[in-house]
Nucleic acid binder design. Structure first.
Length: 367
DNA sequence: TAGACGTGGTA
DNA sequence: TTACCAAGTCT
């Protein structure tokens, strides 16, 4: 593209006029309040907007401002986030709210480096908030902007490498509208999701095609350049469903770090692929997870019954879970509900945060 | 810098 | 069913 001042001005006029006509109506586009924009941007990371919308509405109702979020109950916050994935986002949201209370006197920071200092806020989100809420000319570089920009300039930099970011940043800084930087960013995002899409480039309806190198050369689908993702690793587990006489299930809390941190789970034990195969073919199980040492629990769980199996796919792991129902020799009562901070009998499913594998297990056990 | 970190949708 | 995609960040 010829980057003359006149062309850049025309580029923005075309892009922003298209945006004014075609922008997606989204709840968080009805305001520029930094708190609202922040929450919507965090929720939208690697997540489609259709999925985000109900979560956003519930979140704003329960935590309408920074002060409320800063003192949120951890379990309630995680429960609200249940099903959205990437649960550290919820944890970081509360930490960042506390940062704003202590380091910025409760006022959402308006300086880029201050916004960037918030937990869970990286270069994309900081630029999105800075441009949309504070009118700063910062390109918010997400997957959409990288795809559109790579086609505009036929950039062959691998977008899956973090080092490529600065190349896209350099190009976009020359283009970004000083008057409407927030709309510039959102226009390119909408363009990327509706017109300049990964598998199909609808160049015939693109408002900026006359500036596009890939369009001129008929090569839009050659961009962006991106290395392939690794395949998920297969992992095998046996999960145990143990019920007391009240019908409550025994659950454990996962560690505070790592995959599904702080979420509740049925006791799990790692299996080899062969051991897993044994269970699903003839119900034979060689090793069960350790069960709690309870005073009221019968001394031996003499029998286990194979219930079924399912798989759950994460971005980097594929879990194969066989479900065994533990059958105590006699019925037993439990004196206490909460055994400790990380062991409990489930009384109210709606009160504790459960991730995908556990939700699926409940579905199967209900049948 | 590469890999960890969830989930749901599409082809 | 596999592969990839969707408004990334942290370590």
């Amino acid at each position: 593209m010829n980057l003359s001042e006149k062309n850049i001005k025309k580029f923005n006029e075309n892009l922003l006029a298209w945006y004014d006509e075609n922008k997606k109506p989204l709840p968080w586009r009805e305001t520029t309040n930094a708190y609202n924009i922040w929450i919507s941007e965090i929720m939208s990371q690697q997540t489609q907007v259709e999925t985000v919308m109900p979560y956003y509405e519930r979140f704003m109702k329960k935590y309408p401002d920074v002060a409320t979020l800063a003192v949120a109950n951890d379990a309630e916050l995680l429960k609200l986030w249940e099903g959205l994935g990437y649960y550290s986002r919820a944890r970081n949201l509360k930490l960042a709210a506390q940062q704003i209370m202590t380091e910025f006197e409760g006022i959402f920071p308006s300086v880029l480096t201050d916004i960037l200092s918030l937990k869970g806020v990286g270069p994309y989100t900081a630029a999105a908030i800075a441009s949309i809420s504070f009118g700063l000319a910062e390109p918010a570089i997400d997957g959409n902007l990288m795809r559109v920009t790579s086609r505009l300039f036929e950039l062959t930099n691998d977008i899956s490498k973090s080092g490529s970011r600065k190349i896209f940043d350099q190009h976009l800084r020359k283009l970004i509208s000083a008057d409407r930087p927030g709309d510039f960013n959102q226009a390119l995002m909408d363009l990327g999701s509706k017109v300049c899409t990964p598998k199909i480039a609808k160049c015939e309806v693109c408002p900026i095609r006359v500036y596009c190198e890939a369009y001129a050369h008929g090569t839009p689908l050659n961009f962006p350049v991106k290395t392939k993702k690794l395949k998920q690793k297969d992992l095998y587990f046996v999960a145990v469903a143990l019920q007391n006489s009240l019908g409550e299930y025994y659950l454990e809390k996962r560690p505070a770090t790592g995959l599904l941190a702080d979420m509740w789970t049925f006791p799990l034990s790692v299996l080899t692929e062969n051991e897993f195969g044994q269970i699903i073919t003839d119900g034979a199980v060689s090793k069960l997870p350790d069960l709690p040492d309870l005073p009221d629990l019968p001394e031996t769980i003499s029998k286990t019954e194979y219930i079924g199996n399912f798989t759950h796919i994460f971005s980097h792991q594929k879990w194969h879970i066989a479900i065994m129902r533990a059958v105590p020799e006699e019925k037993f009562e439990v004196a206490e509900n909460f055994l400790s901070a990380d062991k409990m009998w489930l009384t109210d499913l709606s009160a504790i945060p459960l991730a995908g594998p556990q939700v699926k297990m409940f579905e199967i056990l209900k049948k």
